[in-house]
Design a protein around this nucleic acid. Structure first.
Length: 222
DNA sequence: AGCTGATCATAA
DNA sequence: TTATGATCAGCT
């Protein structure tokens, strides 16, 4: 792995130096084998970029660049320049919710400062030929944070009321709740409709594509 | 064609 | 089991 950047500026410069390179070139430099596709290696692009940028966290529950408080997100971009996929943020807490507020929530801290790395994501481009784009170091604007907070509060209200199984991906304007697990048989504890414990599939918070599209656009327009 | 619900790999 | 990294793929 590359040395860990000591400053935000150093990290951004390192990220900018990757722009225009292909995943195949980056894999060679890292001594990694480029998989034929991402079906069995969904996190491969993210891990490749972590290596090049010197991210430290691994699978620990701290930011990728803990000392800088920065989270790294790769985002697949289509021919139209817009994100092809929603962006996973973090697992949603389903129990132990006393005292949890937007201000002290895991998701707010995760999104406080994010280094977005756009990567060509169309499936008809061979994985090794896909190019890395220009990075964006982002923090939510006041408007973006209000949107996120509203959605988060709506979803968390339903979870607290034992309605987690009534939540669909259509809830929320910019933030959605969807399954996040190895498969449908994985269960975790949550509140039932009468306050009793139930077992349900783990859920994660995801940013909807129009939201990430607009934050990327906001950057390129400035 | 886009979206929602489901899924894959790996580490601690 | 929970966290990390996300994309797949069937349905509308």
């Amino acid at each position: 792995m590359q040395p860990t950047p000591k400053t935000e500026q150093e990290l951004l410069e390192r990220a900018q130096s990757l722009a225009g390179l292909t995943l195949g070139e980056l894999a060679d430099a890292a001594g990694m084998i480029t998989p034929p596709d991402l079906r069995r290696d969904k996190g491969w692009v993210g891990q490749l970029l972590e290596w090049h940028l010197g991210a430290t966290a691994g699978s620990k529950p701290v930011p990728d660049f803990a000392e800088l408080g920065i989270e790294l997100k790769t985002i697949p971009i289509g021919y139209n320049g817009k994100p092809l996929e929603t962006t996973f943020v973090c697992v949603a807490p389903l129990i132990g919710l006393q005292g949890v507020s937007w201000e002290n929530s895991h998701i707010r801290h995760k999104l406080a400062r994010v280094l977005w790395m756009p990567v060509e994501g169309e499936r008809d481009i061979p994985l090794g030929d896909r190019h890395v784009g220009s990075p964006l170091l982002w923090s939510p604007s006041p408007e973006e944070e209000q949107q996120l907070r509203r959605d988060w509060e709506e979803l968390m209200d339903m979870i607290v009321l034992g309605q987690v199984e009534q939540i669909t991906a259509r809830h929320g304007e910019v933030l959605q709740l969807r399954p996040k697990a190895a498969n449908g048989r994985v269960l975790t504890e949550a509140y039932g409709a009468n306050g009793q414990p139930i077992k349900t599939q783990p859920r994660g918070f995801y940013l909807k594509t129009p939201f990430t599209a607009s934050l990327l656009e906001r950057y390129f327009v400035i």
